Simulated scan of single mutants.
Amino acid sequence: MSAGNISVAAGPAGSDIVVVTYKSRNNEYVTATVSKGQFALWLPGNELKDAATQGVEVEVTYIDGTTGTSILTL
């Protein structure tokens, strides 16, 4: 039995970013772990497979509480 595909993204977030959130194709929100200027998120499936060429949109929350949108490329 196969465990299936998993999408993983990790990298620098910057010291001023406290939350990184990805909205999946199923309209579910995946909140990354953010620590010491790095982030990591994972979700079932392979929907991040094209992120290297097309990027995916994530919402970031800054330490001051403001939010913004960023394109994540792997």
Rank of each mutant, 00 (worst) to 15 (best):
L48Q: 03
E57T: 15
Q54G: 13
N46T: 00
S70C: 13
E47R: 03
A3Q: 03
L72D: 06
S70V: 14
V56K: 15
P12F: 10
I17P: 05
T66D: 14
D50I: 03
G14W: 02
F39D: 05
V58G: 10
V20C: 07
Y22N: 07
A13I: 03
V58I: 08
S7F: 00
K49S: 12
W42I: 02
T53C: 07
N26I: 00
S70E: 15
V19M: 11
E47F: 00
E59G: 12
F39N: 06
S7K: 07
E57G: 10
T73M: 13
A51C: 11
S2D: 10
V56I: 15
W42H: 08
V19C: 11
V34F: 07
I63S: 15
A40P: 08
S7D: 04
A3L: 02
V30H: 08
G45W: 00
T33C: 06
A9I: 01
I71K: 15
Y29I: 01
V8E: 06
N5V: 01
A52K: 11
G55P: 02
S7C: 00
E57L: 12
T67V: 11
M1R: 10
S70W: 12
F39M: 04
G37C: 15
G37P: 13
I71T: 15
S7N: 07
W42N: 13
V58Y: 13
S35W: 00
T69W: 10
D64M: 08
S24T: 14
V18I: 08
R25G: 11
L48R: 05
T21H: 09
G11E: 05
Q38G: 00
V30F: 03
K23R: 12
I71F: 11
F39W: 09
V8W: 02
Y22I: 03
A10K: 12
A40E: 09
A32Y: 04
E59N: 15
N26M: 06
A9M: 06
V56E: 12
S15Q: 12
W42E: 06
Q54M: 10
T69F: 12
L74N: 09
Q38L: 05
T61N: 04
W42F: 03
M1H: 10
T73Y: 08
S35E: 05
I6A: 14
L74E: 10
Y62T: 03
T66I: 04
M1S: 13
N46S: 11
G4I: 00
G14E: 02
N5T: 01
A9C: 05
G55H: 02
N26A: 15
G68Q: 07
T21N: 13
D16S: 15
S15G: 06
V19L: 05
V30P: 03
N46C: 05
V34H: 11
T67P: 14
A32L: 11
N46V: 00
A52T: 03
T73I: 05
G14P: 06
D64R: 14
I17H: 12
F39V: 02
T66L: 09
L72H: 08
K49C: 04
G14C: 09
V18T: 07
A40Y: 10
T67M: 10
K49P: 00
K49D: 01
V20Q: 09
L72S: 10
S70G: 15
G68H: 04
N46R: 01
K36Q: 12
N27Q: 13
Y22D: 06
M1F: 03
V60L: 14
S35Y: 02
T33M: 07
T66G: 13
T73A: 11
V56F: 07
E28T: 09
E59P: 10
